[in-house]
């Protein structure tokens, strides 16, 4: 996995309102609104920064969405927030392929 600093350096090519909303508040409603935009991508790659030693931080984890030329377009969370809990949300990326070009 690439380090956090490198991830911060990958800037999205354009800011999309639905994606911004999703990044701020990953509710089911915002995931559904963002779905059409996400499906325009071709690839994804998920990053899991570590919060504490031995633990994974799901709230800090994210997926970068790439276009068909493997250029990064935007990033999305991988969680969905419900009223009382959180759920994993990688199923919203169905239709995209993992970008194995990002594996080091």
């Amino acid at each position: 996995m690439l380090c956090r600093d490198l991830m911060a350096a990958i800037k999205p090519q354009k800011t999309i309102r639905e994606i911004e909303q999703l990044q701020k508040e990953p509710t089911e409603e915002n995931w559904k609104k963002a779905l059409k935009i996400i499906q325009k991508g071709k690839y994804y790659y998920i990053y899991y920064p570590s919060a504490l030693k031995g633990k994974m931080s799901l709230s800090s984890a994210y997926a970068i969405i790439y276009d068909k030329s493997e250029k990064p377009i935007f990033k999305v969370p991988i969680l969905k927030k419900t009223k009382n809990s959180i759920e994993g949300a990688t199923s919203y990326l169905v239709g995209l392929d993992i970008n194995r070009g990002m594996i080091k």
Binding site: K80, E87, G88, A89, T90, G95, D97, I98
Partner: peptide, 15 residues
């Protein structure tokens, strides 16, 4: 048993 962070390809294959 779904923890919600499976590979998208796995979800697609499943369905």
């Amino acid at each position: 048993i779904d923890n919600g962070i499976d590979f998208p390809e796995s979800y697609k294959f499943r369905d």
